[in-house]
Design a protein around this nucleic acid. Structure first.
Length: 281
DNA sequence: CCAACCACCTGTCTGC
DNA sequence: TGCAGACAGGTGGTTG
């Protein structure tokens, strides 16, 4: 599922079940996700109250009253399913146990959060909240797209000597955190930039234009509840609908919404890139 | 610094 | 229906 808008959507979906509630019991069905779960994770979680749910890049951080934060990454296929809470008029019933339900958090208040991840590229760890910035998974991350550290001068400086294709540069989490394959493709289409172009061969003006475009695309995607590919659902079971707003991603051979030229698919550093060969120069 | 690969896993779809 | 192969929203790592 998860680029920044999907992770943010998941975070918001988890709030009613988790924030302000205690973890009565942590059920661990598989201790090996992408990496082994932290030592004694179930015991360290049991009884802890979750004071706040935050997001950093594509990570969710659940701050516990024990002074630790539970760090969650969804990888490619990870999902967080919420049940046992009432949202407006709808009660979310507990689902039947499913294949790949690796961790289940039983919350006070009757809520339940199920981490399901078929491919097990996802991860969880516990980190001291006040030291989280030094955590090896977070330490190297670039600025948040919506943060004050992400601005035109920063991005121009970060990109203007890079020989790598702009597509690869924007996927690089050291440069800006949170973009993934979908949103990089969409951003470059909106910016009219050829994904194959070397970052350093793009004018400062055009590089700077990426800042507001990145924010626009991500904002629109978050408003839509993210993108639901292949029927992946959000935390409350709802489908995001930003996929209906894609201009290039997963649209190979369909006409460009701007000029009608067929969208092309190429592979860059092992990932599919979709772009309009006519609008993007 | 960078490109090109590999690794980690499972599920789904396509073409034969 | 079976089967092989390609592909999937991520990311850490090695090699040249």
């Amino acid at each position: 599922m998860p680029e920044l808008p999907e992770v943010e959507t998941v975070r918001r979906g988890l709030v009613p079940a988790m924030e302000g509630h205690r973890i009565e019991r942590a059920e661990v069905n598989r201790p090996d996700l992408r990496w082994p779960l932290p030592e004694r994770m179930a015991e360290r979680l049991q009884g802890a109250r979750i004071d706040r749910l935050r997001r950093r890049s594509k990570y969710i951080l659940a701050d516990l009253d024990s002074g630790e934060s539970l760090l969650i990454h969804l990888g490619m296929s990870g999902r967080m399913l919420v049940s046992g809470v009432t949202l407006g008029e709808f009660h979310l019933d507990h689902p039947a146990p499913a294949k790949h339900d690796h961790v289940v958090l039983h919350m006070s208040g009757g809520g339940r959060v199920t981490f399901n991840d078929a491919r097990r590229f996802g991860a969880m760890d516990l980190v001291l909240t006040e030291r989280e910035q030094a955590h090896w998974l977070l330490a190297g991350l670039g600025p948040e797209p919506f943060g004050n550290d992400f601005h035109e001068d920063y991005l121009v400086e970060a990109l203007k000597r890079r020989a790598t294709p702009i597509k690869s540069a924007l996927l690089d989490q050291h440069i800006v955190a949170g973009l993934g394959n979908i949103y990089v493709c969409e951003v470059l289409h909106r910016a009219g930039i050829d994904p194959r172009r070397q970052a350093k061969r793009i004018s400062n003006l055009r590089l700077a234009s990426l800042v507001p475009i990145i924010r626009e695309v991500l904002t629109e995607a978050i408003s839509a509840g993210g993108s639901s590919l292949r029927d992946h659902r959000q935390a409350d079971g709802e489908l995001g609908y930003f996929q209906h707003s894609f201009h290039v991603y997963d649209r190979e051979d369909t006409p460009c919404t701007t000029c009608g030229t067929p969208i092309r698919r190429i592979v860059q550093s092992g990932r599919s890139t979709f772009f309009c060969p006519s609008c993007q120069k």
